[in-house]
Write a protein that binds this DNA or RNA. Structure first.
Lengths: 187, 187
DNA sequence: TATTACCTACTAGGTACTCAGTAAGGACTG
DNA sequence: CAGTCCTTACTGAGTACCTAGTAGGTAATA
């Protein structure tokens, strides 16, 4: 017998919900530890119902990453180009406000180091893109802008890990301020 | 019928092999993505044969981490206390020589951010311990040794991720040398 | 002979995914 | 405003397989 006690949502809205739930679960378990069942439960539908929207488990991951890209694009567009220091500070502030997302990326970034992970290419290109963008901004301020850009990214990633592990004792923004004072030539 | 075409190893030796194989597999898949079957296959025995040695999947993880601790202890003991810069350089050199292990820790560190991960406590204490040790060394060289220690750890972790992602274009040692020049007061 | 490394066989439950259907909502028509 | 069609969000049932873990036995070694 066919039971329909649950809400039936328009595709766009359901997708939004799926992405949100999946984001949370990947942050907790990683992609390998993620199960379609858990996502379906979190959305209040069955596994085939979930698959109707995303096609496969890999499709689910693609949906999440695509959504993040769109959000990031919008955030970057809103922000005026500014200096290197300002851009970094803005980035850190943005991240400090969404720990769930940062954790998603931290877990997925490490997991996807191996080339056969479905998000491997995505994260390699993302990293390359970020370093290039920061390099351009650093062009005036350093004689090796590439190295500085890599160090900035490294420091951010590392501080984020510490912040995520000890959220109550480590404050991401102030930690970054201290670090950037040491990283950038004193002004 | 009981078939015995495979080698029968003494417990200690088999354990060594199990730890080695598991290390490689966790580095690739994480702990959530690890299966006892894969480990057993990699060791040339059955799953119950594997369980005979480690008891459970969590026991397998404990075995791997305990082994790492012993190795690290030995490495630290061998090294003379030295300055902060020298200690960091030695740490980086040691890591640069064992990418597999570094990847294991990178993946497990991110995965274990969530408190219900079986390695959560292990990594929290490890991080605390590392920062404390570096803080002591930094006591003379900085007015805020704790912050400097956290920044060193963050930078190392971040650079390691980049090195693991682009092993051919990023050299961990030289990357650290450049970074430490910026991090430490010029001497 | 005693220990123990390891096996076969099994359980109970989870995995992603497929197929064929059902009904809800919107769009046409009368 | 009612009736009908069509698209589509979603379900139930099932497939083939993988999961960690147990029970009890076999044989290699000390």
């Amino acid at each position: 017998m066919y039971r329909r006690d649950r809400a039936r949502l328009p595709a766009a809205e359901r997708r939004r919900q799926i992405v949100e739930v999946t984001t949370r679960l990947i942050a907790e378990r990683g992609f390998w530890g993620l199960s379609m069942q858990d996502v379906a439960d979190g959305c209040g539908l069955t596994v085939p119902g979930l698959l109707h929207h995303v096609g496969s488990k890999d499709g689910l991951l693609v949906a999440v990453l695509d959504h993040r890209d769109e959000e990031d694009m919008r955030a970057v567009d809103e922000q005026a180009p500014g200096t290197l220091r300002e851009t970094c500070a803005a980035l850190v502030r943005r991240n400090a406000a969404q720990p769930e997302i940062v954790r998603l990326f931290a877990v997925l970034e490490a997991e996807s180091l191996t080339p056969d992970h479905p998000a491997h290419k995505y994260f390699s290109e993302r990293q390359k893109h970020t370093v290039e963008m920061l390099s351009e901004l650093a062009a005036g301020e350093s004689d090796d802008p590439g190295a500085l850009a890599r160090q900035i990214v490294a420091l951010m990633d590392g501080l984020q890990l510490q912040w995520l592990r000890y959220p109550e004792t480590v404050d991401l923004v102030s930690e970054w301020e201290q670090a950037s004072a040491r990283l950038f030539p004193t002004s």
